[in-house]
Nucleic acid binder design. Structure first.
Lengths: 196, 196
DNA sequence: AGTAAAAATGGACGGTGTCAATTTTGAGTC
DNA sequence: GACTCAAAATTGACACCGTCCATTTTTACT
């Protein structure tokens, strides 16, 4: 019967995920606990065990969802018609934006100690994002000394490092606003200059 | 009497730190717990509270120690007489080496959720390392469009990102050996090419 | 209708960090 | 050298947590 609370209400798994994401956004990774989530959804503390065998399994599902979301954002925001430089800048911009908007989600995505690194869906979701960067580089075939994979790793490292440092405040207190991606743009430009 | 276990054995704080570091190296951050450390040192579960008011305070001390260690390594391994490119490569090499040798220590250094980000000593230890990079860039004054701080952030981001990705296995399974820093060197070179 | 599997429940176990009251030790003072 | 007092270490308690278990309820299928 619609969304009334049934003993088996059928979509508890989905509700657990969404409650967990809300908790993650509000309180960070440390605030996300099985019992806490169950409490929020209004089920017994042990109910989630039927849908996620582990806390790790839950985190894995969350991270997978986050990568999928990020992938959607990339599809929306970086058109395949752009030239190389614009596309790479777009990807970086998109990543930075996502991280600043949902810092705890971004953190979780890289917390390999919370996640099942063997999980097929998570791997696929990660790989999809990474392939997006690779395909951008490949589509604009530039004859250059550096192979495409090295280029991708360089870009990936640079933006991930910059985002990580900004997220945990290791960079100076300057440019805190989302639009203040001037620094990010400048840095990416510098790298591209050496790359292309 | 020498190192026999006294009620006040005087150096328990230091012993706690070293036991914690050992535990960190062996089991990772999640394996480091107040009671576990106390057990290993052979004191009551609540003894550490006299020396560290918090688990966070303990982690802060550990991270500070790690930054100090890294700083020593930098002093040893990157001579101030080198030219710019060699110095930057040396710093990156040193960082990568430290991270691959002590992965859990490196992780802890950036786990701002485990650490008191307001702590003065930790801040100073971090700043000392960062200043080392800045001073290298400043000493070889190159007339270039990018200001020194942006250059430093770019380099810092790139190497931190690359190291982080390697540590949690997000890069392909290639080049796993410590000496296999070819990729790292290549990437840093590319960045420097655009930078200088 | 009857049965078997899935889903949700409450209770228990061992573990954690932190707090409080207590006992032991060490150093400094009369 | 006895006394004091603060620091250091002890035991115990509390509220959490993740995980397992036996039990009850619901659903789906024959």
């Amino acid at each position: 019967m619609s969304q009334s609370i049934k003993y088996h209400h059928g979509n508890l798994k989905a509700e657990l995920v969404s409650a967990a994401l809300a908790l993650l956004d509000e309180q960070g990774i440390e605030g996300v606990g099985i019992r806490q989530i169950a409490r929020r959804v209004g089920v017994a503390h042990s109910a989630p065990a039927n849908h996620f065998k582990n806390k790790q399994a839950l985190f894995t599902a969350l991270a997978t969802q986050c990568f999928a979301d990020l992938n959607c954002l990339l599809d929306e925001q970086v058109s395949p018609a752009l030239d190389l430089s614009a596309a790479v800048h777009g990807i970086c911009q998109c990543l930075l934006n996502y991280a600043l908007t949902s810092p705890h989600r971004y953190s979780l995505m890289w917390r390999k100690d919370c996640v099942d690194t063997q999980n097929a869906e998570l791997d696929a979701a990660m790989e999809t994002v990474y392939q997006k960067l690779l395909s951008v580089l490949a589509s604009h075939t530039q004859a250059k000394q550096v192979d495409i994979e090295s280029q991708a790793i360089a870009i990936w490292s640079l933006i991930h490092g910059y985002v990580s440092l900004r997220l945990d405040g290791s960079l100076g207190k300057g440019q805190d606003d989302i639009t203040g991606s001037d620094r990010s743009n400048a840095i990416v430009s510098v790298l591209l200059e050496g790359l292309l």
